[in-house]
Design a protein around this nucleic acid. Structure first.
Lengths: 214, 214
DNA sequence: ACAAAAGTGTTGCTGTTACACCCATGG
DNA sequence: CCATGGGTGTAACAGCAACACTTTTGT
């Protein structure tokens, strides 16, 4: 017995302390006008990873990205024809994908403010986010570094933490922890936007981050 | 384009402080006499989870078990016909499955002492074990409770820890941690086997175990 | 009574929490 | 000069690591 296989892609980014997802607007029926995850049917000459990579490139124009398998969905009625979805997750910097702007059929959404979604994609997103949230909180180094590959301020990072953990964190303890334990390295630069005192720009100290939890 | 899908099942158990896997011996060509993971081709009226459950029942005769998705494997040359494997993992008590003994085509193996394996199953096992090991060390409650659903002694649990973490742990600190933080509950019973002083039999305090790490 | 294995106590270190206060920038 | 927001200090507490000693069993 044979089945169709597709690889829907959940593209995530940390932006303004929020978790955001990149979706596209469907241009034809069914679900015309609804937002969906970019996806592609697998052929028998392509691996799942390659297929997901192609979806990623089509969506972002970026040739490189951190993409990993998340979960398979096989409900009988998720499509007209029986189609198994093996979802992948990509983590990028929002600013990079913004370059392919101007096209109105793609947009970033906050995870907790999703638009109307086609197929079972809202379900898929929610299930995947649950897992990602768990991975962030248990796997520190594996996930966090991907969300913050380049410079960031500590308040930015803290907002993200509070968002994912869904609880407030003391600003001073947060600072002390990351700076005190050398988990981050001061780049010497500062942010200039906003009203108050500018924050120092840090990057992760990957060595020290190994095996950390929170 | 269509593809075959199968759900190979990794059945694991904690036994004598070691991580063990339940395999079957292939009775026909190809790979006759080699050991393989139990598996089954998916039809279009069955979900992946149902399919894995059937594999589990055929292998163990148990109707209930903790089964969860692990990973998909899609290398082009893993079979003659293009077949995608979506692996599942089950965690049981070894003693339960021992009941279906007497049949020589099924057996438990220590994870680091695998027999000659057919297809790409050795690769699959190693990849899945890597993930499981990680999950055990980061997700405490999610995994550990499944490996130790009923009574156990602390030295037994400690052996398993040392095996998974691959490092020695101080016996006294281990004891103090689990008993002191009420992570385990004394059942009042004791083990009588072996030479030295019998160990107390504990079970996990699920409430207290939530969100723990090690 | 001796070996083997389980249980208990003490101390210092490290990281977390809960606090108040000082500094740099824009309007 | 004041509002806004980032950076620094200190003290109490919890969990972990590194130690030696006591108790319960089988032989």
């Amino acid at each position: 017995m044979q089945n169709y296989i597709e690889t829907p892609l959940i593209i995530l980014s940390a932006d303004e302390g929020k978790l955001k997802i990149y979706l596209e607007k469907k241009q034809d029926e069914p679900y015309k006008g609804y937002w969906i995850l970019p996806s592609k049917i697998l052929d028998d000459q392509t691996t799942l990873e390659q297929n997901a990579q192609i979806v990623y490139q089509n969506m972002t124009n970026l040739d490189k990205g951190v993409i990993f398998q998340t979960r398979a969905f096989s409900d009988l009625n998720r499509h007209q024809v029986r189609t198994i979805a093996i979802s992948f997750t990509a983590i990028t910097e929002k600013t990079l994908t913004d370059m392919k702007k101007g096209i109105n059929d793609k947009s970033w959404f906050q995870i907790d403010e999703l638009p109307k979604l086609g197929f079972d994609h809202e379900y898929i997103i929610n299930e995947v986010i649950k897992e990602i949230r768990k991975k962030i909180t248990t796997n520190y180094d594996d996930m966090l570094l991907k969300f913050f590959p380049s410079d960031f301020t500590l308040p930015e990072l803290q907002s993200f933490y509070e968002y994912v953990l869904n609880k407030p964190i003391d600003r001073r303890n947060f600072h002390k922890k990351f700076v005190g334990q050398d988990l981050v390295i001061d780049t010497g630069f500062k942010t200039s936007k906003g009203s108050g005192r500018p924050g120092a720009l840090y990057r992760f100290n990957e060595e020290k981050m190994k095996g950390k939890k929170l």
